[in-house]
Nucleic acid binder design. Structure first.
Lengths: 219, 219
DNA sequence: CAGACTTAATTGTTTTTTGCAAATAACATT
DNA sequence: AATGTTATTTGCAAAAAACAATTAAGTCTG
């Protein structure tokens, strides 16, 4: 039962989402080697059986190499495979997607964030990968705490509302959103903390401990 | 950038669901070689880079080898990886789950269907795999056509209702279920076809062509 | 063959959720 | 103090879901 066949190449790729200027964006990297040298592509690399505990660890390694720290939210998306997707041979790519607040990326030299609806031409099957990642993100956003991971630890209700609208790509009623989100135990008020500014101060919220422990947020 | 490292073993495993005697069940296979020879396990095998177009093709090959035909519904679940999950070494397993009507399996010699809540001890990390597969199935069942693939091509509303209850594991209101499902374009009446029996005949339904083309049902 | 029995399907009512519009609150600025 | 702007709450209508009961269409029994 040992494989008498040559084994496929095993790699990981990552779809790193952020929101900047009210638009959902992806962080791409410029390829430094052939094939497709010079093109923008999803950050990725081969899985190192020696040093990676599993593919998720490999994804974290790739992400740290790209942005310098761990992503607050990381989840496996899908595994792509086949002979045609990479000219180097039959390959398997385990793809992860991550959500990263723009505030953590600001000033990061390597980070080039492209709007998901205006991406440059992508090599391999990265176009399909991106399509599936966006689909998954939008699908999950509606009924989960996911988009909140695109914000820093403290945020106002209106900021959260906008982030949901931007990830989903549609309008959401303010009052309904507020009511629904508060009924879901996703976020909690931070007592006596407000965002002050030119006008009425806004209550600050944070992700509930329930959500945080579920995802083991790293920041 | 070519991998200087030894590559992981790449395999596929499958979680094959069916419903018999009103219970959600999994089809397991008895292992014929070490490790864990003799134990029941999820049907699986190594990916053959030569003969499999991709991992989904490999999963179909495994399923055909087990039950003799293609599963009506097949979907990738998750990819499990690590050094500890298989004593033979660092491995990556792309896991698929499938739904198969019991009517197609009846009389199939190899098919041993265990209730998902009364499984024998499983080798490797198959216990975790099953847990995740059941979770996914239940999660998707509520708002999709998925459970209908556990029925044969023609079914009554009550049969469908029961299948949904069994996969989800909870009661569903009859009238609401009927209304919701009919409003979703998932199924359609078969004109003038009824299931007759001891009592009032029941209208027969089938999956709508929309759903069928989306999933390319093979039976 | 009438009535009892059983499953199928519909109907009506109540409760909950959602969508929309407006009103009220809390500041800074002039 | 009046005004402008953003935050938050309130009220109501519409839609969806849950619940309860009724009607429909057969078989079976005496």
């Amino acid at each position: 039962m040992e494989p008498a066949y040559p084994q496929p190449l095993v790699m990981v790729d990552t779809a790193l989402f952020t929101i900047r200027d009210e638009r959902l964006r992806l962080i791409l990297t410029r390829r430094k080697e052939p094939p497709f040298e010079g093109l923008f592509a999803l950050p990725g690399g081969f899985v190192h059986a020696q040093e990676d505990a599993d593919t998720e660890a490999a994804a974290r390694r790739v992400i740290r190499g790209k942005i310098g720290f761990d992503a607050p939210y990381l989840e496996q998306l899908f595994t792509f495979s086949g002979a045609a997707r990479d000219p180097r041979g039959w390959s398997v790519s385990v793809v992860y997607y991550a959500l990263i607040p723009w505030s953590l990326l600001e000033g990061n030299s390597a980070a080039e964030a492209f709007p998901v609806d205006a991406l440059p031409p992508l090599p391999f099957d990265h176009g399909q990968i991106v399509a599936r990642a966006v689909e998954r993100l939008r699908g999950k956003a509606t009924y989960s705490s996911l988009p909140a991971f695109l914000l820093s630890a403290e945020f106002t209700m209106n900021e959260l509302h906008r982030i949901y609208e931007q990830t989903i790509g549609a309008r959401l009623d303010k009052a309904s959103f507020r009511h629904k989100i508060l009924g879901q135990d996703i976020i909690e008020e931070i007592p006596n903390r407000f965002r002050t500014g030119a006008h009425r101060p806004a209550q600050l919220y944070r992700l509930s401990s329930k959500v945080l422990t579920a995802f083991e947020r790293k920041i």
